[in-house]
Amino acid sequence: MQDARLRIGATLLLSCAAFSSVFGAVLVALWWGIIGRGERNLPGRHAAAVIFGAIILVAGFTEAFGGDGISYGFRMTVVTLIAFWAFGHGREGDLMNTAVWAFGDRIGFDLGLTAEMAVSSLRRIEKDIRDIKNALKLKGSRGPVHDLIPLGFALTIIQIHRAREQGIILATRGYRGGGTYLPTFRRSKTDNVAFFGSILIIVAVFVSFVGYL
């Protein structure tokens, strides 16, 4: 999906639909299977094991203590798959474009800038974690649990330093809030179909709730 507005909109609708009921999650899973094909951006084995392992763990506990853990596990898995789809195909500037388009040059610009900086930090953290782990391995790792402390500490300090540097750069360039920005969007042939599909799903979920009530 090329158009950032439609992708963000679809992500919100699909996430709500998937989390609200198992019926919604099934529909979203179908959407993901058909329309998200080729753009799924699934994580590597280790990351997948950690993320989905955490979901399974919580679901297991919920089920064991009388809650509906299986439903929770399935719904959260689908929400996570949608998050991978949405995050993986985001391009630099998508959030800025969408925020300025939606909220204008003042609030939209600030929101977009904050969101872009946050996403950019997330992407850099991935590399930082990889590099820190490698550095610790070279220095003589004392095991993944022991390494967590220096890793977390270094990561936090690096982020604080970067945030301060970014703040200084923005202040030096005269940023006081808001700005001039012309949002631009690209759209592929399938964008409308995919977004329309997500609207149909949220409507179907809503109708199923109304019917239930």
Partner: peptide, 15 residues
């Protein structure tokens, strides 16, 4: 064998 990375923060393990 060892490698010194460009950013020294990556190597730090002591508080």
């Amino acid at each position: 064998l060892t490698l010194s990375m460009q950013f020294p923060e990556y190597h730090v393990t002591g508080f």
